[in-house]
Design a binder for these strands. Structure first.
Length: 140
DNA sequence: GCCAACGTTGGC
DNA sequence: GCCAACGTTGGC
């Protein structure tokens, strides 16, 4: 499956992920987002989106460890996954661009701006890769 | 169980 | 800096 995860680049950016080589995607404190984390499987691809000033999809990451208790809290109900960076988009795909393409009008990123983890349809994934000037085939 | 008050997130 | 959207908390 395909997903999109948001991050505030001032807190943890795509470049931080590349620097670290892998990271635990933790800190999700919303039930809807948690339920999506729970469904992630090893090998699933994720778009990493920068909120705040960038407001753009920066790159593609991959799940390497399925959901486990979030180490940043003692509450057992919160979950995290572990991810590695796969590929940076040649051109980040901005929120503005997505809004300009009517086929993304139902995209949760646009409809539900505060949701931090959301599913992405395969066809949406493909189109966003093309907008980002990268070849989608190796990720499908 | 309802709702007002409050806090947080994220776009503009 | 402001505000809309949404989630949470607490009084009743």
């Amino acid at each position: 499956m395909f997903w999109l995860v948001k991050t505030d680049p001032d807190t943890y950016s795509w470049d931080n992920l590349v620097r670290d080589g892998k990271t635990i995607w933790d800190g999700v404190r919303n039930f809807q987002a948690r339920n999506y984390i729970e469904k992630m499987k090893v090998g699933d691809k994720l778009f990493v989106y920068h909120s705040q000033n960038d407001k753009a999809i920066m790159g593609i990451a991959e799940v390497i460890r399925e959901s486990f208790p979030d180490p940043t809290t003692d509450e057992p109900s919160w979950l995290a996954v572990e991810v590695i960076p796969l590929k940076k988009l040649v051109r980040p795909v901005t929120l503005t661009q997505l809004k300009e393409h009517s086929e993304f009008s139902s995209f949760p990123l646009i409809r539900q701006s505060r949701l931090s983890v959301m599913p992405v349809e395969k066809e949406e994934f493909r189109k966003i890769c093309l907008l980002g000037n990268i070849q989608p085939d190796e990720f499908l």
